[in-house]
Design a protein around this nucleic acid. Sequence first.
DNA 1: CGAATAGGTTGTTCTAGCACAAACTTAACC
DNA 2: GGTTAAGTTTGTGCTAGAACAACCTATTCG
Lengths: 238, 238
Amino acid sequence: MSSLRSLDENLISHIPPFRKLERVDVREILDAATPKRFSAGQAIFEEHEPAERFYLLLDGHVRVVRTTAGGDQVIARHIVSGELMGIASALGRTTYPASAVAIDDCLVLFWPTNLWDTFTGKYDGFATETYKTVGARISEANNHILELATQQVEQRVARALMRLAIQSSRTTEEGMEIDFPLTRQNISEMTGTTLYTVSRLLSAWEKQGIVTSGRKKVVVTDMGKLKILADLDPLAES
Amino acid sequence: MSSLRSLDENLISHIPPFRKLERVDVREILDAATPKRFSAGQAIFEEHEPAERFYLLLDGHVRVVRTTAGGDQVIARHIVSGELMGIASALGRTTYPASAVAIDDCLVLFWPTNLWDTFTGKYDGFATETYKTVGARISEANNHILELATQQVEQRVARALMRLAIQSSRTTEEGMEIDFPLTRQNISEMTGTTLYTVSRLLSAWEKQGIVTSGRKKVVVTDMGKLKILADLDPLAES
DNA sequence: CGAATAGGTTGTTCTAGCACAAACTTAACC
DNA sequence: GGTTAAGTTTGTGCTAGAACAACCTATTCG
């Protein structure tokens, strides 16, 4: 027993991979977990590092990032609270395929990787639920490929913003405000473009009343119009 | 019992997900399998269709394709003999996320999707091995994203050709000949460019002795030079 | 509080690679 | 075996969006 107080079961009992588990199982899982805080900007794990742990994000936002040999960064995805991360270790990998960086202050739980097999074997819903997650991430990745290969920058940025607004925003009087700091540069790294182009797009959209944006802040004020931009097919003439 | 002769165990006993299994298990698995032939161009399964079966490709080559609303096609990957396909059904999906098309004449085995859980539960190495495959596909997809987001068309085409040559080629006097029909259009759909650009690149490379190409045929004659093109960082000045 | 820094905007230039067109070549098929 | 179709090559615009530069504005921190 460490000096940490025992973790509350309600912390994770509603989260998909654990939702179907018995109270006792949840207890066991929590007892095996180590909680840890990360402050904004800190790396949680790094690409290529041996994958010794898998994590559950309880609070905060995490960016999953890959870096090319040439130094370009690409943001693969964002993790919001309640999601597992670093689980690629559970897919036959021995190293992390990407780095995870805390965007704001984060609270995570982690377990040693060797417990993964115990979890999937012992707790029944766990395996199915997590593989569903994995399946969803494959689809996500493939959609991203499709977008990068076929769509214009404008559409890609529109889609990225839509996804963020849906996945992780709070609703204010203005509209849907993405609830973590997000720069033009960040958006460009999500969509394979430059920060300049993103800046111009946001300026234009602001004039059309689709978004409001400021320093590290983006608010979607008209989701309908944004969706039109996202779905717009540049080839199809009306 | 169907009129089909019993399938030979050697057919699959060396293939990764089955490699670690006992002879009896392999027998059982084969007895549950249905063999089927597809001729060049035929669809094996279609995107959005309910995923009622999962397949093992025994012979031939398969293209995994997605189509956008706008009608653009993107080739997600190629399946070569010995690989499983349509297993997304096993990742919590109920429909196929992409279409699979036979490139040449193919021989496959398939099982009803509901047997997946039996397989992963009953046959020990099976689960780990297939999830390793899944892990590899996620990595692949993420690499593809990285390439599309950061690299020039020339590099992407070079990389695609390298991968194909390594994954599926026969060695002739000329070099490594990709052992299935492959058009400029196909290459462009793998790399997010146009058939015109691919044609120009291949012409240029042919002059430099890197490849030889013809109708639906590509031979890599100088893998070393191709790798240099693939790794070339356009930003880094020497 | 004032400098330093991180983030944002906007103008200008330039080019990779797309679009379209037209002609050519190889394979397929009545 | 000649016609049709599928695949390829090459030329000529043309433009989306990258690159670079210069300047502006909000934060942070000593």
